[in-house]
Design a protein around this nucleic acid. Sequence first.
RNA 1: GGGCGGUUAGCUCAGUUGGUUAGAGCACCUGCUUUACACGCAGGGGGUCAGAGGUUCGAGUCCUCUACCGCCCACCA
Length: 807
Amino acid sequence: MNPIPKRYESASVEPKWQQFWEDNGIYHFKQDDSRPVYSVDTPPPTVSGDLHLGHCYSYSHPDFYIRFQRMNGKNIFYPMGWDDNGLPTERLVEERMGISPEKVGPVAFIKAVNEMSQQLEKNYEWLWRRIGLSVDWRYTYTTIGDSARKVAQYSFIDLYKQGRVYRASSPTIWCPTCKTALAQAEVTDFQRETNFITIAFTLSDGQVLPISTTRPELLPACVAVFVNPTDKRHSHLIGKKAITPVFKKEVPILGDLKADPEKGTGIVMCCTFGDTTDIKWWREYKLPLISVIDHAGHLNEAGSFLSGMNIKEARKRIIEELTKSNLVLDKKVTSQTVSMHDRCDTPIEYIETKQWFIKVLDQKERLLKAGSQIKWHPPHMHARYEDWVKNLEWDWCISRQRYYGVPFPVWYCTKCDSVHLADISELPVDPRTSKPSKPCSCGSKDFTPETSLLDTWGTSSMSPQIAGRWLDEPALFKKVFPVSIRPQAHDIIRTWAFYTIVKSLYHENKVPWSDIAISGHGLSSEGHKVSKSRGNASDPKEMMEAYSADAVRYWASSSKLGEDSMISEEKIASGHKLVNKLWNVTSFSYQFLENYSSPTKTPALLPTDKWILSRLNQLIPEVTKDFEEYNHASAKNCIEEFFWDVFTDNYMEMVKTRLYDFADGSPERDSARFTLYTVLMTIIQLFAPIIPYVTEEIYQQVFKKNNTALSIHLSSWPRLQKELIDDNAEAIGDMLIEVATAVRRYKSEKKIPMGSPLETLKIAVTKDANAEILKKCLVDIKSVTRAKQINITIAKLDTALSVQGIS
RNA sequence: GGGCGGUUAGCUCAGUUGGUUAGAGCACCUGCUUUACACGCAGGGGGUCAGAGGUUCGAGUCCUCUACCGCCCACCA
């Protein structure tokens, strides 16, 4: 008779609804639809390893508020992409397969990268579907794919025409391991111990000039010596010449306030280039350029006898040489901060190369203003963006000397070196395998392709344009741009958020999104950031098999936006318990609701039912507000507390008698069934954004027959019914709980079963009116207390209840 | 060195605009096979809300300072 299975089997139920959503296009965006659009600038996961629970955490958050918006009648545009173009994916292939472009050649390498990213993307998609992201899978892209290439190349050409990109030979942040130029945003800091040695320069008269350095191997590139003009010890040296040790080169001694009298000896050598100060001095004082480090991090001919050595070897050798000649005056260990490439942890060098840049330094004001036009959630994340923009020192270097990525649509005339752009109609183009359609204005038909590739952020910064099919479907783009929401994690505010704002301002003169929601990271149990490459994550598949996808989402919903959260198997287990509890409530309710058809009007309600319905209607606006404000943790807590503490532990115990024992069609039973139906339906709707599977199963089993929505996720969000809010009923409810608690305490203290009957229960109340109402609740009080006899008396004081008798 | 967060029960975290006796889950203790659920139910123990000062009738909540933790940035001689 009861077709509801006793146990909830998430392993079979979840894939069933996943398939159902897919087959019925539940999450499809409707282009020809007048409902307001809610569009999402989904983060395309970087294809750089396996996804872990940390990703499930941050990707679940947008799904909560997207599902909420969908139930509120929004036309949802929720695409998905994979960021597989560029260095991170290359590095993964190098690490996992032990191959490099140098060893196997670029063609075989690119093939390997392609194969690995396709495999990983399949895994990613499987996981996202399984965890229940309500993505419209018709709108997917990869950043290496043709349409993304086309958008990225178009963007470059557009910016070139606007004069916002330029190619320049200048000192560039360079990774000697990856052998490519980098942007400021790809550099991260690292503290380490290093030798700080003081070496003897000399003045032309032979007097010793002690200079401290951590990088003696750059000595051959020394072009000047600086002292602080306010430093009385050294200011008299300004204008004289210094002679470098070992290499015996004469360099000028200059005065500049950036020379710190407190550091080392107060005298500093300027090499091209040891750090950004060297670059500033080189520019300001028009010093000569001696490049001594090559692209692979070796010293070149300028290094004389150090030539051919890597930086470490050269440093060791020059120290030996200096020591031999008694030129080392002092040596100590010091703590130093070095800048490293964030993808490979190699200390970066500053090397003069020719690169493409996008101008950003001249637009700081505009970029700051754009940042304030966007609503940041949580608001303090805005400060990180502002800090970044204010502290920018470099234009955005967008060329990378790599293999797997989007090429520049650019050739250079071999004869006159002028720049030739591809024709828009030819995009995407690979300049290495094709030629410009027209000869150069100088008459030459000989062209050299640009062999660098675009920075991977150069493509992903166009995510709204790529996902919204900017070039191919302008009508679609117009509907979804500016995008409603950008979800992303806080570590890439300076990259992805920043670059997307840059591109959107330059191309559209608009901010890309009205809101940005910043998630934290899922942290390992030791409190460390889980990362794809470090492999310290538990496997989401295992967790979902053991506890269900809903349970994993439950954990994700339990902390606030922007906060990191420890991966907690205990919390996932709690999620599993909640799912199970919902199922048991359903299986109990089903026997009373199986043949229930929702009444056209609210029946006459008993006080207990009025109470729970009033509480329910207090809950609805609260939860609605929470979801509107991206406060899923609070929403979850409120619904859970109402469901578990108020509804199941109290209300349901009170109405059992009416449901089991009263005649079908009696007012008492009608009121209870109506209430049970309404409350349970509303609870699963409120829970639906967070735990979409079990709520769908319950909807389909119990409520679908009375509702038109094909899926709970297409049903309308519960509306507040003000007329059901009833302060008096709530006061009665509080009294009922008070009575139940007193009886439970009594039984618990006597260590007798909750089900054992009570002989007499005496309740004293202060108001006549309350006594009258309580009398209407006798059946419910009996249900929860098993009292045979209840005496209600009026007392002057609000005396405690008295519970008597056992049998 | 600058900025932004955080510091609440053994652990993980909620605590809206300052308002009774500071909450939850897990863990712990005592009981309970109550016709939805032992993946449960009832009862209980456990916190000078990081420290100090201030504003206020009233501060976990607002202000100031201090300490520690985390993140971002700067410093890279």
